[in-house]
Amino acid sequence: MNWLRVYAIVYLVFLYLPVLLLPVFSFNDATVIAFPLQGFTTQWFKELAGISALHGALKNSLFIGIVSATLSTILGICAARASTRYRFPFKAPIMGAIMLPLVLPEIIVAVSLLVVLMQLGFSLTSWTVIMGHTLICTPFAIAILSSSFQGLDQSLEEAAVDLGETRWGAFSKIILPLVTPGIVASFLIAFTISMDEFIIAFFLTGADPTLPVYIWSQLRFPKRLPSVMALGTLLIVASLVLLSVAEYFRRRGIRRTGAKDSGGFL
């Protein structure tokens, strides 16, 4: 099956093409983003350090990302536990509704939240963005955490109770350590989604833009493009570090429970 392997490699090149260009142009000593390359420079990276609007946007995005990821992971834990352990009326429709943002076009989520906030007279702040991001991150958190919770033998918790633990003790001593890798993964993925999300932030952000909204505003100025490239390169490095951390936790979780390695995230 040689042609299939060739196709796979061509496909990977297609996947990586834009991503690989990012570092290439961020070190290119020219203001125009085009070939041929003009020589090596690090000035675009140095320039980044001097843009205070960027720093504000970054801080804002980190704050929104951390809060949204925390909220959606907590909601995810509750929902995943409820859906794997308990039976309650209308369970399927309720779970379906919670998972809806996963398939709802983001623009719809964005405009409908905007409309409600306008009607209720709320002003747009970081918290309105957090609301939107929690809404779209929670389904991902639930999906990841459900598979962690589902993999658990129900009798583990009963065994702990049988051996004298309280319900809470059994949860904290047995269940929590076993789903920790899932919690870490859920947090990191929610955080990444929030950091990267543009359209909801674009609609719901107030005076302080998030990082993607800031980048969007910069794309209009050709002179700013090389430093945007440099910023993008830094973001890639940051995501790779985050991903490696997530992968490390996942592997450790697998090792600790002796489960079989069944591939990456998602």
Binding site: L12, L15, L22, I215, G232, S239, G264, F265
Partner: peptide, 13 residues
């Protein structure tokens, strides 16, 4: 892993 990596970079970019 290789297939998913490029998608951890900003969609906008």
């Amino acid at each position: 892993f290789l297939i998913t990596i490029p998608f951890w970079t900003s969609y906008l970019l």
